[in-house]
Design a protein around this nucleic acid. Structure first.
Length: 366
DNA sequence: AGGTTAAGCGCG
DNA sequence: AAAGCGCGCTTAACCT
């Protein structure tokens, strides 16, 4: 990190505090005269990762800043902090879970937040590797595969999507095959990447503009993808329209188990606020149903652990994942039983697939 | 000294 | 003009 800081100072033509938005903006946009690609809500030139990535194509400093940022995030939030949060009585870090915080019914986690431990980068995974099991035990992680898309299939009752899951297909590949009109075996890496962005975008209520930005393509092309998607999966198109209409009519949306989210701005005069409420209306039933489902799974798993007397403890919940500490000789039995209990929270018209992994640490268990 | 806001970024 | 949902944490900058 020191070397990166020195490199940044050299490229900037003088020392500055890399963590200071004010100083950084001064150097990037005044001194070096890099183009302002995006502004913050308050009007200052944005130095967000997405902007730096774009600028890095033409200038040397942004790439250095990006690497420095990612490393300092890991150091300040996890590497420096977590060891100091070990409880001297237990020798472990203990999070607090909050059951009545989120709008959708998810849990949240704080002090420390153990629901955002790094996993996406190699350096980040080294932090996850520090979460280890007691001697004689293993970590077992069980996560639902594509839970929100499965819920979308159930709620929309779209025949194509239901069939894709019933047949056990890779859903992003199946989507790509439909949208790009190719055999599923012929789907390219790039087509699958695009289909994945479409699928996630649908869950979030994303527009053609957002999809275009995400994929780095034109707005018209993005709109074509969406049009073709809805033509191939008309049940999904209907479901989205019905959900919006119901939200406007009732002023709330519900999960499959009846958890409500009220949307006070769904009929706001301000079009922007109204559209934001519509995106929430699309997302909340899917995110919230997933939350309902894993909570029921947690109850079932807890009941079994206590009634069976198995040497295992449920340690963490990360939205679609349960993490256990399990005695070595109980790992096989617990893995099988947990997968069954989680899969059998079955009120969906699609199979629930659970992926279970084991290891000496949390990273290995994935 | 201590609290709040803005920007940014870690995760699902 | 905005344009992708849900969280919590850190630092800098600003405020009382």
């Amino acid at each position: 990190m020191l070397a990166l800081e020195a490199k940044a100072h050299e490229l900037a033509g003088g020392p500055f505090n890399l963590g200071s938005p004010k100083q950084l903006g001064e150097i990037l946009f005044n001194k070096l005269e890099l183009p302002v690609l995006k502004k913050t809500p308050k009007g200052a030139p944005s130095t967000a990762e997405e902007v730096l990535a774009e600028l890095a194509l033409d200038y040397p400093l942004p790439a250095v800043l990006m690497e420095y940022r990612s490393l300092s995030k890991l150091k300040s939030t996890y590497t420096d902090k977590l060891p100091g949060m070990i409880d001297p009585k237990t020798g472990r870090v203990h999070t607090s879970y909050h059951q009545a915080v989120t709008a959708t019914g998810r849990l949240s986690s704080s002090d420390p937040n153990l629901q955002n431990i790094p996993i996406r980068t190699e350096e980040g995974r080294r932090i996850r590797q520090a979460f280890i099991a007691a001697p004689g035990c293993k970590i077992v992680a069980a996560d639902y595969s594509q839970i929100e898309l499965r819920i979308m299939a159930h709620l929309s009752q779209d025949p194509g999507l239901l069939a894709a899951f019933a047949e056990g297909l890779d859903v992003h590949s199946a989507t790509a095959a439909e949208v790009f009109a190719v055999d599923i075996e012929q789907v390219s890496v790039d087509q699958r990447r695009k289909a994945k962005a479409i699928n996630f975008g649908l869950i979030y209520g994303m527009s053609a503009f957002g999809l275009a930005k995400q994929l780095g393509i034109g707005r018209h092309e993005a709109q074509q993808y969406i049009d073709v998607y809805f033509a191939r999966y008309p049940g999904v198109a209907d479901y989205m329209a019905r959900t919006r209409a119901l939200a406007h009519e009732k002023g709330y949306v519900e999960t499959l188990k009846g958890r409500r989210l009220y949307l006070p701005e769904i009929n706001a005069r301000n079009r922007q606020r109204q559209q934001a409420a519509e995106r929430t209306a699309i997302n909340a039933p899917m995110q919230g149903t997933a939350a309902d489902l894993i909570k029921l799974a947690m109850l079932a798993v807890d009941a079994w652990i206590h009634s069976s007397g198995v040497d295992a403890r449920l340690m963490m919940q990360v939205h679609d994942e349960l993490v256990f500490e399990v005695a070595d000789d109980a790992v096989a039995g617990l893995s099988e039983k947990v997968a069954a209990l989680m899969s059998d929270i079955g009120w969906l018209d699609v199979p629930l697939v659970v992926e279970v992994g084991t290891g000496d640490n949390w990273d290995e268990a994935h």
